[in-house]
Write a protein that binds this DNA or RNA. Structure first.
Length: 295
DNA sequence: AGTTGTCAAGCTAGT
DNA sequence: ACTAGCTTGACAACT
């Protein structure tokens, strides 16, 4: 079981998701930003290896505007050496990688243009992972999309559009249950017809489910992962008190987390801690787990 | 140097 | 009708 946190490290003093304004786009700026972001990504990964965080989500902002029409620059070729070098570091240290394109990515949108832009964005994510020469266990996770007042039709549209995706996207794309639109059983329905693996989001499952216990749900999701996809990815969080339903906790609630670990005991998975304070909470989790291992 | 409005993109529920 | 929330900050124009 690997533990990770998403995108941002707050203790090493650099970010791998630095961007700029579209209005200020220039090739020079793009090269500068991507160069810095890749340098910082390497530093974050080194920090992670030292601290035994072997699961990491790379920010979608690592190559700003990569899928925007304004970007015609061949960044894959320009940074080829860096990609290969970071990729070998990832493989050498057996780090699991994921990416999570933003909320604008809607494979099942009714508007063809949104679908087109979404595919362009997925293409960017997959090209990025391909450039690092990572195997297909490095995943790109999205939500199913919008309901548009007709869930069945929206599921059909997802499946239809998914089947049309190019192979280099299909091999990495996975779906995640969300907290108010498509829950685990909706995702399972899609998975049974497309064989797409499901990232299990435990917090979303608490918010929105079809009566499955945490353990049942995690096992159902894990069965959608083939050997070559790697083990089940889990997104873990809990409710931030005083905020609207679905708001992620600012810092980890260890009691809640321990109970979650007990509930899914015996299931191999990699856990992404979607907690706002990032590695601070991840360090507390590690302390707890290493204590368990020494007992 | 510090503050603050704004940033490519969408959907949903809650106010 | 409007906004918070979602991987959420961080950019950049303004004091």
């Amino acid at each position: 079981m690997k533990i990770g946190y998403p995108c941002i490290n707050r203790s090493i003093g650099c970010t791998a998701n630095s961007t700029f304004r579209l209005a200020n786009y220039s090739e020079h700026r793009l090269i500068e930003k991507v160069g810095n972001n890749l340098d910082c990504l390497q530093k974050i990964l080194e920090f992670n290896v030292e601290n035994n965080f072997l699961f990491f989500r790379i920010s979608s902002d690592i190559v700003p505007f990569a899928s925007h029409p304004v970007c015609t620059f061949d960044w894959i070729d320009h940074f080829k050496k860096d990609f290969v070098s970071i990729g070998s570091y990832i493989k050498k240290n057996n780090i699991r990688i994921s990416m999570h394109p933003d909320q604008f990515i809607l494979i099942n949108a009714k508007d063809e243009n949104i679908v087109k832009r979404s595919i362009a964005e997925l293409d960017y994510h997959c090209n990025f992972l391909d450039a690092m020469k990572l195997d297909k266990a490095a995943k790109v996770q999205v939500h199913v999309g919008g309901v548009y007042g007709d869930k069945d039709a929206s599921i059909e549209r997802f499946i239809k559009n998914y089947n049309l995706l190019p192979q280099h996207i299909k091999k990495r794309l996975v779906i995640e249950n969300d907290h108010n639109r498509f829950n685990l059983s909706d995702c399972l329905q899609i998975s049974s017809r497309t064989k797409i693996p499901i990232v299990f989001d435990s917090f979303h499952h608490e918010c929105f489910n079809n009566g499955e216990t945490m353990k049942e749900a995690a096992i159902l999701a894990s069965k959608t992962w083939k050997k070559s996809d790697g083990v089940l990815m889990v997104d873990y969080s809990s409710q931030q008190g005083g905020k609207v339903k679905g708001a992620h906790a600012q810092s980890i609630n260890m009691g809640h987390f321990k109970q979650f670990l007990q509930e899914i005991a015996g299931l191999d998975c990699d856990i992404m801690l979607e907690i706002k304070d990032k590695e601070a909470s991840a360090l507390r989790v590690h302390k707890y787990i290493s204590r368990l291992e020494t007992i």
